[in-house]
């Protein structure tokens, strides 16, 4: 087990730079999720840690070992791929044992490790089957078993659940988390699914277009998003954004002229309001004209526009509400739940 340190990592293909200086410390035993939209460079970053991509600049340390120039096999890592990458012509047992066999570990030890991993993952009865005879979830377990038997310093997961159906995904998500806690091994997990990221990670690294937007715990990201991007990416349904103007008297003027309190600076700002933070209040200053309702049972999503404007807004109210379209509802928001961002840079104010 070991910590993982990324120091100012750059990656370019020819003249195109795709990662622009990624840094981060991942503690021993920590589960870090790298999350971001497709094309943000998250898989590239993981593959650089694994040694499958050449590092253009910067350093990767596993423990206190610099691993930049080490082959993947010598970095003491294990990786689980999106399509599992099991060897189709080998049985489950051979798949799991292959890496150990190459390392020259004794047959007895290999058998012990394979069987131990098979017990943990409950795949003992499949050991002599070929991958094609297994279901998606079972293949996923084998892929993890292959990682476990290596007893690596760091586990790397590259979107391992995206080939599974929704129900199985939730189940495997929990299992991955339990497994990681049980083994206490450092893990880096790449996904584009923010729910997966929030539920799995001790800390999340949000990547956007090759930059780290924010690196923190799921709650930090939810409560204090560092930028517009993070604010829009984390949370479901997504945060509402409104343009507003900070007045000298500390008030904020919304797009429809309504003023609310809590300005942090003068001039144009972008306001962020989470749908679940909008509190219904007949006297509330934020007035939304209802257009569509989504009944989720536990809560109701109210889609509409800010009164007098075309600005789309969503509010989430607990319980069941029956409202006819066209009705105007008033909402309040607590000042500490009102996020304010610089309109130009998108940074949190």
């Amino acid at each position: 087990m070991a910590s993982l340190t990324l120091k100012d990592l750059y990656k370019s293909y020819g003249n195109t730079e795709v990662l622009h200086g990624i840094s981060g410390e991942i503690q021993d035993g920590e589960f870090v999720v790298i999350v971001g939209p497709s094309g943000c460079g998250k898989s590239t970053l993981l593959r650089m840690i694994a040694g499958l991509e050449i590092i253009s600049a910067g350093e990767v340390y596993i423990g206190d070992r610099k691993v930049n120039d080490l082959e993947p096999a010598d970095r003491d890592i294990a990786m689980v791929f999106q399509n599992y990458a099991l060897y189709p012509h080998m049985s489950v047992r051979q798949n799991m044992a292959y890496g150990l066999k190459i390392r020259g570990i004794s047959k007895k030890e290999i058998n012990r490790r394979v069987e131990e991993a098979a017990d943990i993952l409950e795949i003992r009865e499949y050991l002599d089957r070929k991958p094609r005879q297994l279901s998606g979830g079972q293949r996923q377990r084998v892929a993890m078993g292959r990682a476990i038997v290596r007893e690596p310093e760091v586990f790397l997961f590259d979107e391992p659940l995206s080939n599974l159906d929704a129900k199985l995904r939730v189940q495997m998500r929990l299992e991955i988390r339990k497994l990681q806690q049980r083994l206490g091994v450092t893990a880096v997990y790449v996904t584009h699914d923010q729910v997966e990221a929030m539920t799995l990670g001790d800390r999340l690294m949000v990547l956007n277009a090759g930059y780290v937007e924010q690196f923190g715990t799921p709650l930090e990201l939810y409560e204090r998003p560092a930028s517009l991007f993070v604010a829009g990416f984390i949370g479901s349904p997504a945060m509402n954004f409104l343009e507003a103007k900070g007045q000298p008297d500390g008030m904020l003027q919304l797009e429809n002229g309504v003023v609310i309190s809590g300005a942090k600076s003068e001039g144009p700002v972008t306001l962020g309001m989470r749908p679940e933070h909008l509190i219904e209040d007949t006297e509330g200053p934020i007035r939304i004209e209802v257009s569509v309702l989504e009944q989720l049972g536990a809560n109701t999503l109210i889609h509409g526009t800010l009164e007098g404007t075309e600005r789309e807004m969503v509010a989430s109210l607990p319980g069941i509400h029956q409202l006819e379209p066209g009705r105007v509802l008033g909402f309040l928001i607590r000042p500490d739940e009102l996020h304010q961002f610089d309109s130009k840079t998108g940074k949190r104010l």
Partner: peptide, 8 residues
């Protein structure tokens, strides 16, 4: 890649 990680 999997084979490389396995050390082949």
């Amino acid at each position: 890649e999997s084979a490389r990680i396995d050390g082949a």
